[in-house]
Amino acid sequence: MTRPKRPKYANKKVVLNGTAFDSKKEARRFGELQILERAGEIKDLQTQYAFVLAESVKFNSEPRSKPAVKYLADFVYVRDGRVVVEDVKSAATKKLAVYRLKKHLMKSVHGIEVVEI
């Protein structure tokens, strides 16, 4: 008998009002953002919004095209007329090379600085 696989970063998935989140911290932040939206401080709150960082490409040496490189933001909303992108991160996931590269590309490609929560 095999045990269920533990999450890599010890997070616990949570469902809140029918929306699935990767951690309790992320679900809690969603609740906070919903309150801000109801109060009129932010608008157009979206979860798991994908930004294209690099388009799909086809290499001559490979049979299939490579998919576009995307950044999947935990939360996107508008505050004071500008788009805000938030990502809920632990100390460990903040340090990941792939995340740091995608954060850099978000600023370079889209002019958006990712806010880490």
Results as ranks from 00 to 15, higher is better:
P4F: 02
F59K: 11
Y77I: 11
P7G: 04
E26A: 08
E62M: 15
K43N: 02
Q46M: 04
L33N: 10
V88F: 07
F51C: 01
F21C: 03
N60V: 13
K13D: 06
V69G: 04
L96Y: 06
E55Q: 03
R79P: 05
N60R: 14
K107R: 14
K95L: 07
A39C: 06
K8L: 05
V88H: 12
S23H: 02
S23Q: 06
K95R: 14
P4Q: 07
R28W: 14
K107A: 15
R100I: 10
D74G: 05
Y49M: 02
G31T: 09
A73F: 01
G81A: 05
Q34P: 06
V69W: 02
L72Q: 01
T2M: 01
R82E: 11
G31P: 04
P67F: 13
R79T: 04
N11A: 08
L53E: 06
K66E: 11
K24Q: 04
N60Y: 14
E32M: 09
E55I: 03
V76P: 04
V88E: 12
K95S: 09
V78I: 15
L101P: 00
L96G: 05
R29K: 15
A54H: 14
E55N: 08
L101A: 09
K103G: 02
D22K: 02
G81D: 10
A91W: 06
F30D: 01
V85I: 13
Q48W: 00
K89V: 04
G40M: 10
I117C: 11
K70F: 00
A10F: 01
E37Q: 09
K25G: 09
V114Q: 03
K43M: 05
L33Y: 11
K107T: 15
M1H: 07
V52L: 02
Y99W: 00
H110P: 07
M1P: 00
Q46C: 02
T19R: 13
S56M: 12
R6C: 06
T47W: 05
V98D: 12
F30T: 06
V76I: 15
V83K: 13
D80L: 07
R100E: 13
Q34K: 07
K103P: 06
P4V: 03
P7K: 01
S108T: 15
G31S: 12
V109G: 09
V98L: 10
V69M: 09
I112L: 15
V109K: 15
E26R: 02
Y71S: 05
S23K: 02
V76R: 08
A20R: 10
N17R: 00
V114S: 04
V98T: 13
V15N: 03
E41H: 14
R79E: 11
G111F: 14
L101W: 04
H104L: 10
Y77S: 06
V83R: 11
P67V: 14
D74R: 01
Y77T: 14
K89Y: 01
Y77H: 15
L45W: 02
A91C: 10
R28M: 12
D22L: 00
A97V: 07
A54V: 03
G81E: 08
D80E: 10
A91L: 14
N11V: 03
E41A: 14
Y71C: 08
K13W: 03
V78P: 06
